[in-house]
Simulated assay, not measured.
Amino acid sequence: MSLKIRLARGGSKKRPYYTIVVADARSPRDGRFLEKLGSWNPMLAKDDAKRVELNAERIQDWLAKGAQPTDRVLRFLAEAGIAQRDAKNNPEKAKPGKKAQERAKERAAKAAEAESAEA
Rank of each mutant, 00 (worst) to 15 (best):
G10V: 00
P16V: 04
S12K: 10
A67S: 12
A67H: 05
A80F: 08
L37P: 04
A112Q: 15
P69E: 12
I20Y: 03
E113W: 06
A109K: 13
S39V: 02
K50H: 12
E118L: 15
K88Y: 06
A112I: 11
A23F: 08
G31E: 01
A119V: 11
M43S: 13
A109S: 08
N55G: 08
R103Q: 15
A109W: 11
D48H: 11
F33E: 04
Q101L: 14
A49F: 10
N90K: 14
I59S: 03
A111L: 11
A83Y: 03
E35A: 13
L54F: 04
V73H: 04
A94K: 13
G10Y: 09
D71F: 08
A112E: 15
P42C: 13
W40H: 14
A100K: 11
A94M: 05
E35G: 06
R103M: 15
Q84I: 12
G31Y: 02
E57I: 07
Q60I: 05
L77T: 09
R6N: 10
E115W: 03
M1C: 06
K46Q: 13
K36P: 02
V22M: 00
A49S: 15
R9T: 09
L74I: 10
L37H: 03
R9E: 13
L63A: 05
L77Y: 10
L63V: 01
M43T: 15
Q84Y: 11
K95R: 12
S27W: 04
Y17G: 00
I5L: 02
K110T: 04
A78I: 02
R107C: 01
E35P: 05
K93R: 14
E106A: 15
Y18S: 03
W40M: 01
S39E: 09
R85E: 07
L54H: 03
R75V: 09
D47T: 15
A100G: 09
A100H: 03
A117L: 13
A8K: 11
R75L: 14
L63G: 04
A100N: 08
A117F: 09
A80Q: 13
A114R: 08
M1L: 12
G97V: 06
I20M: 09
E106R: 15
N55T: 09
D47R: 15
V52I: 15
A78V: 02
L74M: 13
K13D: 04
R75F: 11
R6G: 04
A49V: 14
R72K: 08
E53P: 00
D24K: 07
W40V: 00
R29V: 03
G11L: 07
I82A: 06
E115M: 06
K95Y: 05
R9F: 02
S116W: 12
T19K: 15
F33T: 01
R75H: 13
L7E: 05
R32Q: 14
R6D: 06
G10N: 04
N55P: 01
K93G: 03
N89K: 14
Y17E: 00
A104D: 11
V21R: 02
D48R: 03
A87V: 12
L77E: 06
A23M: 06
K4L: 13
A109V: 08
E102Q: 14
A67P: 08
G31W: 01
K93N: 07
R75W: 07
K88H: 12
